[in-house]
Nucleic acid binder design. Structure first.
Lengths: 149, 149
DNA sequence: TTTACTGCAAAGGGTTTGCAACATG
DNA sequence: CATGTTGCAAACCCTTTGCAGTAAA
């Protein structure tokens, strides 16, 4: 990642937070930078381990604030611990997840555009029939990762 | 559902449990019948509410046993409470889920076979590149259900 | 008669919150 | 200075487990 991209990211986050009358504090900036640096979704335990200067309660609160500002996305994998990553709104990419049922690790994955479109069409069609308003779709591939195989 | 179908279901479950040297007790039969009767995945709280004769610990234990026997499927939705349904191995159908981000309710949904195949192809292809062994895929549509709209 | 199952109550673990002090607009 | 934010510790909630008794193969 380029430094310039990092600045654009922070500017974007700052804007999104201001919309909700919330502040882009040093702690939140550190958290966003950490999530940006890590290449996969991580649990709060992993985030605290990566930066012990954060307090647990503030971490949870900041993740909640950032989630509400569409900066962070919360994932519920195979185990009970939630995992967090930067939201697609902020990173610009669209991806799905490989979830290891053995260790709970989540990796990002991208699928062909044709598949995305097919899913999208089927989704909207099926959901509309039920009066369900879809916001987004989530495709997860459950299996075993290389280290657990 | 026909009574005959219910019997076939119970026979199937009994067989699957025997494979793991486990017993199809009255409590488990009641639980399977309850999951069969309910048309959507439900939380343990809802299951206990639907049949207060079950004890909480036995419910959790039996759900775990039935999950391991591929009779029950555990879903982790948008909120923290897990939801349970009969596994596709037992019901014979293949479906995905509409998850309401407002109330957490999960509804079943089926998508066109062509979409299933496209997803399956993309999945295997992308996962293989990462050395990831896929067991199954999970497509979830997040949005707002009719009662929460 | 050995092994699995049940119920109760207590513990566990991830997440949230009350409160007082602090920092920011 | 009014409002948002932080850290600590305690509370919370869903889930799991120890144990002693019961039922099934």
């Amino acid at each position: 990642m380029s430094p310039a991209m990092g600045i654009a990211l922070h500017d974007d986050v700052a804007t999104r937070l201001r919309r909700g009358r919330q502040r882009y504090t040093p702690a939140r900036r550190t958290l966003v930078a950490l999530l940006h640096r890590l290449d996969r979704p991580h649990t709060t335990a992993e985030l605290l381990d990566a930066d012990p200067s954060m307090s647990q309660s503030s971490l949870y609160r900041n993740l909640a604030v950032l989630e509400q500002a569409d900066v962070v996305r919360r994932l519920t994998g195979s185990d009970d611990a939630a995992r967090f990553e930067l939201a697609e709104d902020v990173t610009g990419d669209h991806h799905h997840h490989l979830v290891c049922t053995a260790c709970g690790t989540i990796e990002d994955i991208e699928v062909a555009q044709a598949v995305e479109e097919a899913m999208h069409d089927a989704i909207d069609h099926a959901a509309d029939e039920r009066g369900f308003t879809t916001e987004l779709h989530r495709l997860e591939l459950l299996g075993t990762c290389t280290t657990c195989a």
